[in-house]
Write a protein that binds this DNA or RNA. Structure first.
Length: 524
RNA sequence: GGGAGCGUAGCUCAAUUGGCAGAGCAAUGGACUCUUAAUCCAUAGGUUGAAGGUUCGAUUCCUUCCGCUCUCACCA
């Protein structure tokens, strides 16, 4: 008997009880409402394609089949002693005609216990209904899974604008419910499935792109003894047997570079990073990152590679290089501008000149114009040239970069793992890729001088001592690895979720993560 | 954490100035063997997120709490 469920309304219970009772009646007919063993030999979409050009007369003469399909019933139009049902499988949906005079009393009885949403198996021959739709005339009807809860909304096959608007209007709209019960969202909201198919195509494309260039995909630890690879607050967990705290990784960077030391001179990893920070439309605590490292390449080479990879990915995923995102059109076609950070600032702050980047007071005063809170203003007052430059970029430039744009020559202060520029030691051989005002990629020629790296680590430790929360730990083994020698290398990280957002016109990162993190439910 | 908004039937949404809580779909019973969002007849479905307050009367106004969304801050 059905176990009692808590926190359900009487209406909900009644709806479930009615469906449960139908399952019991199926048992009375000798049928298992959750039976196994029906193996469909065909797919709805294949049958529709195969007979797309066959006339009603041809089908009537040849009676192609028998075909067997299985899937979820998304629509029922009942006529008492006959009915049309629409069966949806992974390939598409096909209409099935069930008739009492064909199936007989025994074969027809389970159809009368059908609810929309149930899974069924059908064997039948193809014909065209009077309205011209390719349909299976059922010679066998098998209930496969009895569903106890209804689907929201109503299915329509119509693909004109009016039908789509109608379907959307009644689809599951409650945002929380859509994320919490993605399985319903996928069934109810048109387009959700397509978004996640596109996300998978994006990742598949990137893998094959890098594989073809001789990169080796690897997996490095997700549980780290030290905080490394990025400036972020980590999740802390505990290993009982070793009795040590471990950090969920915030970035795989130092492990991947150890592999370059070990001779894997083209490596990449696509996997999750975890950061214990705010949740927003652009932030999920676990997110997917591509990181790759190529020995003997420079950050200039990686700009070439990035442009080629992402513009080709855009075409592969969306069908074209011009992509609609909200109100904007993003052009992923090649020829992306490459602008030094200082130049990008000068382009937008007219009363600033190149010489002012030696004048920290001047930079602070410009930054103060857009510092709103007292805390912001206090932070500006203590900034050095590099920090103020980075802030000016965020304040005046970042949000304006709609089409893909590389920003280069980052200040050394906020690039603790990047190689210094040979001509100007105050900046690093680094770029970030911006698109729609957001950072999509971050890359640099790697710092492979162990002495310099050791000093930068010490700087991080001192910053932590001063109270800065997002700092890296001193990683002695990583210094040791560099002492064994890392060839000149360039490396890059690309936020896969954010790239997927751009290519699927998703306004929230939660729309491209199947099960985004939500506060656990206390009731309901 | 700050600010703004939202919460009504299983789903999508109404409810005039504070005046009987409604519709479509889904469901249930009935009719119907070519429908496409089937059609027709009938029925049932509610602690209006929770608690308190103002009022003759609260879905509506006030307070607190819970939850969600957006936004700012931190960050990718």
């Amino acid at each position: 008997m059905r176990p009692a469920m808590s926190d359900e309304s009487d209406v909900e219970k009644k709806l479930k009880d009615e469906r449960f009772a139908k399952g019991e009646k199926l048992k009375g007919l000798g049928l298992n409402p959750y039976g196994n063993g029906f193996r469909p030999a065909h797919l709805a979409g294949d049958l529709l394609a195969k007979h797309a050009n066959d006339t009603p007369e041809q089908l009537e003469a040849t009676k192609p089949g028998p075909y067997s399909i299985a899937g979820r019933v998304v629509s029922v139009r009942d006529f008492g002693k006959a009915g049309f049902i629409v069966v949806q499988d992974r390939s598409g949906a096909i209409q099935v005609h069930v008739k009492k005079d064909v199936l007989g009393e025994q074969g027809f009885a389970p159809y009368k216990l059908l609810d929309v949403g149930d899974f069924v198996g059908v064997v039948g021959t193809a014909f065209r209904s009077k309205t011209g739709e390719l349909t299976l005339a059922a010679t066998e009807y098998r209930p496969l899974t009895k569903t106890l809860r209804p689907l929201p909304g109503k299915f329509t096959k119509g693909d004109d604008a009016e039908a789509k608007a109608w379907a959307e209007k009644q689809a599951l709209a409650d945002v929380e419910e859509r994320y919490r019960r993605r399985y319903v969202d996928l069934l109810s909201n048109p387009g959700v499935k397509d978004t996640f198919v596109k996300r998978t195509k994006l990742v598949q494309f990137i893998r094959s792109f890098l594989d073809q260039r001789g990169y080796l995909e690897v997996e490095t630890p997700m549980m780290h003894p030290l905080i490394s690879g990025a400036a972020a607050r980590p999740f802390v967990t505990h290993h009982n047997v070793y009795d040590v705290d471990l950090y969920m990784r915030i970035a795989p960077e130092l492990y991947l570079k150890r592999l370059v030391v070990g001779g894997f001179d083209r490596v990449y990893e696509i996997n999750r990073n975890f950061r214990n920070e705010g949740v927003s439309t652009k932030h999920n605590p676990e997110f997917t990152m591509l990181e790759f490292y190529e020995a003997y390449a420079t950050y200039h080479d990686l700009m070439d590679l990035t442009e080629e990879m992402i513009s080709a990915a855009a075409v592969h995923v969306t069908g074209g290089a011009k992509v609609t995102y909200g109100e904007h059109q993003i052009d992923f076609g090649k020829g992306w501008p490459r602008i030094p950070m200082r130049q990008a600032i000068l382009d937008r702050v007219k009363d600033l000149s190149a010489n002012d980047f030696g004048d920290v007071e001047k930079l602070r005063s410009v930054a103060l114009r857009r510092a709103e809170t007292p805390a912001d203003k206090a932070a500006v007052a203590t900034m050095n040239v590099g920090e103020a430059t980075a802030l000016l970029f965020e304040q005046y430039v970042e949000g304006e970069l709609i089409n893909p744009t590389f920003i280069t020559e980052f200040p050394v202060e906020n690039s603790p793992l990047a190689r210094r520029n040979d001509a100007n030691p105050a900046i690093t051989d680094r770029f970030e890729l911006f698109c729609m005002g957001r950072e999509i990629a971050n890359a640099f020629s790697e710092l492979n001088d162990p002495i310099d790296q050791e000093q930068r680590f010490k700087g991080q430790v001192e910053a932590k001592a001063r109270g800065q929360q997002e700092t890296m730990d001193y990683d002695a083994d990583y210094i040791r690895a560099l002492e064994h020698g890392m060839p000149p290398t360039a490396g890059e990280g690309i936020g896969i979720d954010r790239l997927a957002m751009l290519l699927t016109n998703a306004q929230s990162i939660r729309d491209v993560i199947l099960f985004p993190l939500l506060r656990p439910q206390t009731s309901k």
